[in-house]
Structure formats: C-alpha cells, structure tokens
Simulated assay, not measured.
Amino acid sequence: MNRKSGMTSIEITISLALILLFLSMIFPILRMTLKLEGSFLFQERIERNSSRLVEMLTKEIESSSFGEEEYRGREKLINGKGIYQLVGVKPSSLNESFFSDRREEGNMLFLEIPCVKNGKIYSKYYMYRFVGDTFLVSQCTNEFKNIYTNEEFILFDYVSGYFKQDKKGIKIVMKVKKEKNYIRELKDYALKGRKW
C-alpha cells in the first residue's frame, strides 16, 4: 500500500485551533505588558521632569537678591523674593499694592535675579505660579519703576501646588498627577535662599 505523505484536513484544523488558542492566551498578556511599560515610562518621565523643575527652582531662588535697579514695591520683598496668592488671570503689571500683599504661603513666587552683562549689573524678574493643573512662568520687565509681566509659558502640566516661606527658606509643595492611578506628592523641598 502506497501512502502519500502530507497533512489531512483534520490535522490542519486541529493545528489551527491550537494556534488560535495559544494566540488568544498570549495577546492579553502582551497588551497588559505594553500598558504597564507605558505606565512605567510615564512615571519615569514625571520623576525626571519634576526633579529638574525642583533643581531649576532651587538655583533661581538661591541666586535671587536685589540688583541695582529700583522699582515700586521692592522694599516689601525679602532679598528679592516674595510669595503671593494670585487668583484669576495674571496682572499686566505688579505695582506697590501688589507687592504689599506678600504672604507666608501662596500659589505664586516672584523672584528678582541680578545678572552681569558687559560689566553692568541688571536684573531679571520671574513670576512662577500654579494655576489649575499647570505650573507657569512669566518673565517680567522693569519699565519706569514698574514691573510688567510678559507672556506666560507652561513649565509643567498635570501639577498643582503652592509655595511656603518657613524658617529654612522657601519650600515648594507640588502634587503631580496625570491618571487616577498615578498621583505623587513632592514636598519638603526646602529651597533655601542666599543669606546676606
């Protein structure tokens, strides 16, 4: 009897059924693995960006002080720093009455940072603030002894927080959030200012 080599339709059907069964078990595991990888990558990015943000703010606060330029309300600041509670849209100018409302805790930090260029000392002015779920910065200008705020830029999304003045210096308390399953609170970063 001469038998031809090959597979019968029953063997092919059983093989396909086993392959489909195997794939139906593998795909959910693969999908879950990809979702977990995305979550871990997101958390790693948040950790890295929040650390950079705190490092940047630390440098800005440490280098803040009074320069040679005069502006109305500067005597209300401490070494070129002030914390304020700002509700609503940012003001177009920061006048003496604004600087008079300095607080121990608030959602906005104003900094004056002296710089040297071509042997001349001038100052840069920054306004950092938490609004809703964003962290914003505005560079300000000193014109006719008034501080004017320029365009705001988003530094960090999905974050809320506040600034607090304590005995150690200025502290930032920041809560990072994006998804319900990832909320991380960064606090007790004592950002000390320069002592004079």
Rank of each mutant, 00 (worst) to 15 (best):
R31L: 15
I26P: 01
N95P: 01
K168F: 01
N146W: 06
D166P: 08
Q139V: 08
N79F: 11
L41Y: 13
K117A: 14
K117S: 15
I26K: 06
F144N: 09
L86E: 00
R102D: 07
D166R: 07
E60D: 14
F153M: 08
I61G: 01
G88E: 04
K120H: 10
S9N: 09
F40G: 05
Y148W: 11
E179T: 14
D133K: 14
T134I: 12
K35E: 15
V173Q: 05
R184P: 01
I113T: 14
K192Q: 11
S50D: 12
D166L: 07
I183K: 11
S24D: 01
M174D: 03
K4N: 07
K4A: 09
F153Y: 10
K35D: 15
S97Y: 02
V87K: 13
I113P: 07
D133V: 03
S39C: 00
F156Q: 09
L155Q: 08
R48P: 04
Q139W: 00
S9Y: 10
N79S: 13
K180L: 07
I19A: 14
R194M: 08
S50A: 12
E60Y: 10
F40K: 08
L20A: 15
F144R: 04
N95K: 04
L41N: 11
T141H: 05
Y162K: 09
G38H: 07
E143C: 04
A17I: 09
K177G: 03
M25K: 03
N142R: 06
R52D: 06
L155K: 05
R72V: 03
G88Y: 05
R3S: 03
S24Q: 03
I61E: 05
E68D: 05
D166W: 06
K175V: 15
E105V: 07
E60A: 08
R45Y: 08
K167W: 05
F66R: 02
S50G: 00
L186T: 13
E75V: 08
L155I: 13
T58R: 10
L16V: 14
S51C: 09
L57K: 01
G169P: 11
C140K: 04
D101L: 10
C140S: 02
K187G: 10
G132D: 12
G106S: 06
E104W: 02
F22Q: 03
N79Y: 14
P28K: 06
S24N: 07
R129D: 04
